[in-house]
């Protein structure tokens, strides 16, 4: 049924930019630290800066793209499927009928890029909250309405 990867909807492309900005914010202090060590000349030129910059570039340029491609979701008629993870792959299905409440959250950076995180809460101990980041804000709101309408319809 829904186990193939090609039925998945990709996240909003801005999500890659957002992850890059976050990775950059994490990497900058390390690059500065390596520059400081470089200036102090304890070891040969480039001993600190070259590997640090290479790793930082990998984390900022490559990893967000891979993570973006590993993520995806599928809004079925009665279920939400969330797929994520490069190394540790997880594939979660939450039937609408089991959703307790729905959150749409926006951090400051997410607001800048017009993105939002949709979180659905279930009563289970495993997967009590399933997060789906990187949705366009209006998509997240629309998905919330769809799920809520479904909960309402099922109950009547």
């Amino acid at each position: 049924m829904d186990d193939t990867e090609d039925t998945l909807t990709p996240l909003h492309p801005n999500h890659v930019k957002l992850m890059r900005v976050i990775a950059l914010l994490v990497a900058v202090p390390f690059v500065i630290a390596s520059l400081v060590l470089e200036v102090s000349r304890v070891l040969p030129v480039g001993f600190f800066v070259v590997p640090v910059v290479l790793v930082a570039a990998f984390l900022v340029i490559r990893v967000p793209l891979r993570r973006y491609h590993a993520r995806g979701y599928d809004m079925g008629g009665d279920r939400l499927r969330v797929v994520r993870g490069i190394l540790f792959h997880s594939d979660t299905v939450v039937p609408f009928g089991r959703i307790q409440h729905i959150d749409v959250d926006q951090g400051p950076l997410q607001r800048f890029y017009g993105l939002a995180t949709l979180t659905v809460h279930t009563a289970g101990t495993h997967n009590a909250s399933v997060h789906l980041p990187g949705l366009a804000n209006e998509d997240a709101a629309a998905m919330r309405e769809t799920i809520r309408a479904h909960i309402r319809r099922e109950t009547i």
Binding site: D103, D105, Q106, G107, P108, R144, R148, I151
Partner: peptide
């Protein structure tokens, strides 16, 4: 204040 959070809880729940 800076981030926005919106939570919706259906009555049935």
């Amino acid at each position: 204040i800076l981030s926005r959070a919106a939570r919706s809880v259906p009555y049935e729940r």
